[in-house]
Design a protein around this nucleic acid. Structure first.
Lengths: 222, 222
DNA sequence: CTGTATCCTCTAAGATACTG
DNA sequence: CAGTATCTTAGAGGATACAG
């Protein structure tokens, strides 16, 4: 991408990460940590291999991504975010938070990745009752599993199963994700096929951080 | 831009604002408020008129920009951000904050706009001593004037002159901007041609928000 | 003055085949 | 698996002409 040629930090930032696919590559590296070319490709459905290759070179050239040889047993290259690259996390959070308002509409042709079940709660929700004892929610969607742990004012999430969850949510990924991030309500989620077993009251504990800056999530784009 | 086709709020956000020039158009509308086609063009050196026109139509189509007829005397169209468009401010702030690390290098061919003298302090600095009495800094750069008012924990800025400033900073825009945002130190700014008259201690009051703990790598998923 | 429309050129992006 | 090479197409950039 050619430079905007402006002495403005926004323009300069976009000079580096404004290219198509670039911020999504950073997203993948943030979510996965160090990973291989193929892992990145798997997380970015639709990207051409030459483009991914070119972007990685560019990102390496400007010091946002590093490449390192994997430890002995596996002979491959691992791509990883540098300190400057990791510092883009607030940018992606802000973008993702803004984008939540666009998530209420479903499009049949869209891809969904199970990993997003885990990052969405950590990035876009907060513990509404920091003083209360920890709570655990098990998510089950399309054969994929994730666990949300709420406690001490923090929300953590990981892929996998919990031993003794307070609540089990099962259903289509979009219903679960929409419910957790506050894009859709429990009624709609239920109509989308969501079922819950256990203490539904822990849902109130999980406060979407979406509608905080300029009030209303507002009408969806049409 | 074609859609990424992912049910992910970051991807969906980029579907709408990931095009070249789009976020800079939003930046201009945020900084200027409602303005005319020509004003936007002036703030976006290098953009082709047909491209600006096309982007504005796209932004209007997805509900981020509205167009309204100016009040009677002037017969023109004013472009303005909708509520959803205004909500992009945190995204631009995050990008701009991240981009500050790129501002230390000068490039001779780059454009600088005097308006940025005003928004940079409000977006990228904070009042380090909220309890202290208000302070006023007058900025003079290349014939352009801006005023920074610090007080009550807030930093405000506007184009123009102050009656009785505590400090007057004069010099090249980049020296002033770099100093205020913490990209360069006072020594370097002085060597770049900055002069200061008055109470230099109020500079300590203006704390750059750049190197704050929020940008520290907060538990990247591994 | 405020845009819109139409050229043209050139780079970026997408699709796919193929190699170390 | 990890890319490179090649081809095609879409979109950006720039110049200018033109309409309200």
């Amino acid at each position: 991408m050619r430079s905007y040629g402006q002495y403005c930090s926004i323009a300069r930032a976009l000079d580096l990460v404004g290219d198509r696919w670039t911020l999504l590559i950073v997203r993948e590296l943030l979510l996965r940590g160090s990973c291989r070319f193929t892992d990145l490709k798997a997380g970015l459905p639709g990207i051409a291999t030459n483009l991914l290759s070119a972007r990685l070179k560019e990102l390496e050239g400007v010091g946002l991504v590093g490449r390192e040889d994997a430890p002995p047993p596996v002979a491959t290259v691992l791509y990883t975010l540098t300190e400057d690259g990791l510092a883009l996390e607030p940018v992606l959070k802000a973008l993702g938070l803004w984008g939540l308002r666009l998530m209420d509409v479903e499009r049949p042709d869209e891809v969904f990745q199970a990993r997003w079940l885990a990052y969405a709660p950590t990035w876009f929700t907060t513990d509404a009752d920091p003083g209360a004892p920890p709570a655990v929610i098990q998510l089950l969607a399309s054969g994929e599993q994730a666990v949300i742990e709420i406690g001490g004012g923090e929300v953590r999430a990981r892929v996998g199963r919990a031993a003794d969850p307070d609540l089990i949510l099962e259903g289509p990924p979009r219903a679960i994700l929409g419910l957790l991030t506050g894009v859709i309500d429990l009624d709609l989620a239920t109509r989308m096929g969501l079922t819950g077993h256990g203490r539904r009251d822990v849902l109130a504990r999980l406060r979407p951080v979406a509608a905080d800056p300029a009030s209303a999530p507002s009408a969806a784009v049409r």
